[in-house]
């Protein structure tokens, strides 16, 4: 056990946790931010994607301790229901989600994808989302959402 202090969405979260605590568990169980989801145990599905210093990371793949000193942003930190992030807005307008479970990770990956490539083509988007699995949408509307989100973000 040891105290871990992480900056999540601009707020310091200090908790005593086991040394082997995964970042995703710290976010969900200790910080109480349940928008970051766990859909697999092999870092394949991407439901747990958060940003660490602006880079998208699967939070099930690193220890909480490894994130000390970094700025962590989760889905709760990018927009609110009154002021959605442009990418969140684009997903809503283009029906880019159904059950909502993969959505937080998908949106976080999409934001990073667009921030790196403002004029992403359909192929770029499909390749870029290869690490996020969605079982509901068939990706058609997700791709459409990311394109629209890129435009809204000033691409």
């Amino acid at each position: 056990m040891g105290e871990i202090s992480l900056n999540i969405n601009g707020k310091v979260e200090k908790h005593d946790v086991g040394d082997n605590t995964l970042l995703v568990d710290f976010i969900r169980e200790n910080a109480g931010l349940t928008g970051t989801h766990v859909g697999c145990d092999t870092s394949q599905c991407g439901a747990c994607v958060v940003h660490i210093d602006g880079v998208s990371v699967k939070a099930c793949t690193m220890l909480a301790a490894q994130a000390q000193g970094s700025e962590i942003t989760t889905i709760e930190g990018i927009g609110t229901s009154d002021a959605l992030h442009p990418m969140q807005e684009a997903f809503k307008e283009n029906h880019g989600l159904q059950c909502g479970f993969c959505t937080p990770g998908m949106v976080m990956s999409a934001i990073e994808l667009v921030s790196k490539n403002k004029n992403a083509s359909e192929k770029d988007i499909r390749d870029g989302l290869e690490g996020n699995i969605c079982r509901c949408t068939g990706y058609h509307n997700i791709v459409k959402s990311v394109k629209a989100g890129a435009e809204k973000m000033g691409g």
């Binding site: 931010l33 349940t34 928008g35 970051t36 989760t74 889905i75 709760e76 927009g79 609110t80 229901s81 959605l84 969140q88 997903f91 809503k92 989600l97 909502g100 479970f101 959505t103 937080p104 949106v107």
Partner: peptide, 10 residues
Amino acid sequence: EDKKFLTGKG
């Protein structure tokens, strides 16, 4: 229902 899912409030 989208807003809650999009903001992690599901």
